[in-house]
């Protein structure tokens, strides 16, 4: 049972196409996993569409007839198929199923690299920036306490992790604004997440602060 969902405000912006492609990817992947949000988005779509297309402009007749003629004599656009290119990811001898939205962008998944603390990450290259990663935490792993200059969205694809606030399981979507501090960790179970950052994270405690100049190497 999914406990944590994107806010309605985020879902509206998602539906309007007002968010970064990379954040849309995280939210779209949550929607693949979450029938509740899939339904909400359907409602939002109906409402947004009705509102956005409710006013008509004054369209000159000649221009209209001209465009109509051009369209009806145009050749058909290329046919597109929607088959996901990535069905699952393998890591540490385990296979994880990939939801279709992420699967359709699967060719953009980069190689895995190891990060201190039994954590692995693989960047997903969206718009040439690397602010979105698959992050795999082995059982008993911890990311040092950190904060963000920007926002962070995390989607649990498989497994479970906890921070100071709560415990998160398959499908849970966590959105943290800036100045939120937290230290994610896993217990008996490992955890695969899709994580989006709009600025590099900042480690806040003890020795981990030494990592700050390099933090962008880890999660961005």
């Amino acid at each position: 049972m999914i406990k944590f969902h994107p806010t309605e405000e985020l879902l509206v912006k998602y539906t309007q196409g007002e968010l970064d492609a990379s954040l849309c990817l995280v939210i779209g992947t949550h929607i693949d996993m979450c029938p509740v949000c899939a339904n909400t988005v359907k409602d939002i779509e109906e409402n947004v569409a009705a509102e956005m297309l409710n006013k008509s402009s004054r369209f000159a007749t000649a221009e209209m007839d001209n465009m109509l003629e051009q369209i009806m004599s145009s050749s058909a656009p290329q046919t597109v198929f929607r088959e996901p290119t990535l069905k699952e990811v393998s890591l540490e001898g385990k296979q994880f199923k990939v939801p279709p939205t992420l699967g359709r962008l699967g060719s953009r998944l980069g190689p895995w690299s190891k990060v201190p603390g039994s954590v692995w990450r693989a960047p997903v290259d969206i718009e040439g920036e690397q602010n979105i990663n698959l992050i795999y935490m082995a059982a008993g792993a911890a990311v040092p306490e950190h904060t963000h200059r920007g926002s962070e969205a995390t989607l649990v694809l498989n497994g479970s992790f906890a921070d100071e606030y709560d415990r998160y399981d398959d499908g849970d979507f966590i959105y943290l604004g800036d100045s939120h501090r937290h230290s994610p960790q896993t217990a008996q179970e490992d955890c695969l997440t899709l994580a989006w950052l709009d600025a590099p994270l900042q480690f806040t405690s003890g020795v981990a602060r030494l990592l700050n100049p390099f933090s962008s190497l880890f999660f961005r």
């Binding site: 956005m52 297309l53 409710n54 006013k55 008509s56 402009s57 004054r58 369209f59 209209m64 465009m67 109509l68 369209i71």
Partner: peptide, 11 residues
């Protein structure tokens, strides 16, 4: 087209 084009244009 006559229904949607002017709405799309306004949008």
């Amino acid at each position: 087209f006559k229904h949607f084009a002017p709405r799309l244009q306004a949008f």
